[in-house]
């Protein structure tokens, strides 16, 4: 079953009097449970593509269908609702809310869905990522690896259909990075989540089911084809 369908997607920006095309006619689809890595050099359009797939930005042309929702036909708040229900995020720079504790950070997505047992589930998730003794710590009191583990726990908190990860190990040392990779793939398997990941790290990309290469805003290769 297709969980993400990207159809003839383009993205252009107006830069002064010039029109800048950062994504040009992208087509691919991802099946449920599949893991996919988007790779390519800096400026190739990876992050923009990830943002469009996750409904963080609008397409200039084409269509993105995510978990049955046609994103271009939704307004910003409707897309937020889709993100709340269907999507999890892991960022390169963790993006934890600095004013919330680790536990509270993980609770947020469940609370948004109105889930009653948010605290219980958040505790369990933090235990899964090995942070059961850091529940009341604030992000500033955690190391980079610990922050990314909180971020992973938060990403899985709302049982997402798709997990988007933007360079999840980019800010971490090798050992911590490997530990985070294991955690992501383990949880991904356990929860049967679709994983879409942007990375420079070809070794990490190789661990996914499928790799798409981007260059100059175009999709130049897809290991699936």
């Amino acid at each position: 079953m297709t969980v993400l369908k990207v159809d003839k997607v383009s993205k252009t920006y107006q830069s002064g009097s010039r029109q800048l095309t950062v994504l040009d006619d992208i087509n691919f689809s991802v099946a449920a449970g599949q893991s996919l890595a988007i790779v390519g050099p800096s400026g190739s359009g990876k992050t923009t593509l990830l943002g469009l797939c996750a409904g963080l930005d609008h397409v200039s042309a084409g269509s993105v269908q995510l978990a049955g929702h046609k994103l271009e036909s939704l307004n910003e708040d409707q897309r937020a609702e889709v993100r709340s229900q269907e999507i999890g995020f892991i960022f390169q720079n963790f993006q934890l809310l600095p004013t919330l504790t680790a536990l509270e950070n993980v609770m947020v997505p469940m609370e948004l869905k109105g889930q009653k047992d948010a605290m219980k589930v958040a505790r369990e998730l933090l235990a899964k990522v090995g942070l059961e003794d850091r529940l009341t710590h604030y992000p500033s009191q955690l190391s980079g690896g610990e922050q990314q583990r909180v971020s992973i726990a938060r990403a899985f908190a709302n049982k997402p259909k798709i997990l988007f990860a933007d360079e999840p190990t980019g800010n971490l040392d090798t050992d911590t990075g490997e530990m985070i990779e294991r955690l992501i793939f383990d949880l991904n398997r356990q929860e049967n989540t679709t994983l879409i990941m942007v990375t420079h790290d070809l070794e990490l990309a190789a661990k996914t089911d499928r790799i798409v290469h981007m260059r100059g805003g175009k999709l130049v290769s897809d290991s699936n084809e």
């Binding site: 937020a80 609702e81 889709v82 993100r83 934890l96 809310l97």
Partner: peptide
Amino acid sequence: LPSVAVLRCLGVSSR
């Protein structure tokens, strides 16, 4: 602003 962007990412409406 970064926290706001995260909240928006997590599905919180702008309102």
